[in-house]
Design a protein around this nucleic acid. Structure first.
Length: 311
DNA sequence: CTCGATCCCTGGACGC
DNA sequence: TGCGTCCAGGGATCGA
């Protein structure tokens, strides 16, 4: 299941393989995962793929009407992208270049014919992915929906974002509006490393927990990128090669096995509709959320000045 | 704002 | 061998 490290791996592979190429033709088959198929057919032929980068769990294929010299691309890095093809791999999406004589894989739904004779093919058995051509204001607005990149976010911003949520930390980590790119595997792995129970409320994390979580999450993501992602189910990179990080999973998929830190039996529970793997000893359960009586003796009413407002 | 439930979709695991 | 059932989960959506 592609999360940040897997998408980063694919994006890097595509950057090396097809950046600079021109799209000549677009062939669509099933299209229910495409925002507006007609727009793809109308806009993409003739476009040049300037650069491919990752944005959260999306790949951004930056496009232009004419070829852009490499030096100019490097110089423009980080600037506002004018137009792009957004590709989300969902659970089973693959995007990779092929030679036209290679047989079409099952569930190939989109083919881009390139100017060097190859084809960029998108396959997605379950079609949980998404594809959209966006430009200008619409593109900017789409990208603004997402939170901070967990590799780049500062300690202050990370703390502010997590602390702003009353949801359980597992749900917060999976919320793409808070952080972009974290999915189920890396959420569980980072919580285990930081010794935080998945049902602990985000707003109740201590400063120490927040900083530990940010640093461990970052380290885990970087290590996973280095190993080209986790290949469980059927993830492979743009060159068809699986990743190796699944060998390093400490809790994900290890329900019932021994915690590698304390030996306790790892557990799995559902949080926010997703299975969550954790160590019941290393990651102690938070105190019941409703246990907020006690201590109110005679303080009675202090300041009732809480704004009921919102934002 | 946050929650759970439901849906999307197919392949793989499992039981018989 | 084959069939039915359950499960995996990112994200959208809906009602509570």
């Amino acid at each position: 299941m592609p999360e940040l490290p897997e998408v980063e791996t694919v994006a890097r592979g595509l950057q090396a393989a097809v950046a600079g190429r021109q799209i000549l033709r677009v062939t669509l088959r099933k299209t229910d995962f495409i925002d507006d198929p007609a727009v793809l057919e109308r806009e993409l032929p003739g476009r040049h793929i300037v650069r491919i980068e990752r944005f959260g769990k999306f790949m951004l294929l930056q496009l232009a009407h004419r070829a852009v010299p490499e030096a100019a691309v490097a110089q423009a890095a980080g600037e506002q992208v004018a137009e792009a093809l957004l590709v989300h791999l969902g659970m089973t999406g693959h995007l990779a270049p092929h030679f036209p004589e290679q047989p079409l894989a099952k569930h190939t739904h989109v083919t881009f014919a390139l100017d060097d004779g190859r084809e960029l093919r998108y396959t997605d058995a379950r079609r949980f992915g998404r594809m959209a051509y966006l430009s200008g204001r619409a593109l900017a607005e789409e990208l603004e929906r997402f939170g901070a990149d967990p590799l780049l976010v500062s300690g202050g911003e990370f703390a502010r974002r997590i602390h702003a949520s009353k949801a359980r930390i597992k749900a917060v980590l999976l919320d793409q509006r808070v952080l972009r790119g974290v999915g189920n595997i890396y959420a569980d792995e980072s919580l285990w490393k930081a010794r935080i129970h998945p049902t602990k409320v985000g707003a109740r994390l201590t400063p120490v927990e927040l900083e530990s979580l940010r640093k461990e999450l970052r380290k885990i993501l970087l290590k996973a990128i280095e190993l080209r992602g986790s290949s469980i189910s059927d993830f492979v990179d743009a060159g068809g090669i699986p990743g190796d990080y699944q060998q390093h999973h400490k809790v994900y998929g290890r329900e019932g096995q021994a915690c590698l830190r304390c030996g306790a039996k790892l557990k799995r529970i559902m949080v926010a509709g997703r299975s969550s793997h954790f160590c019941p000893v290393c990651q102690p359960a938070p105190r019941a959320a409703h246990g907020r009586r006690r201590r109110q003796k005679k303080k009675t009413k202090r300041n009732r000045a809480r704004t009921t407002s919102n934002g």
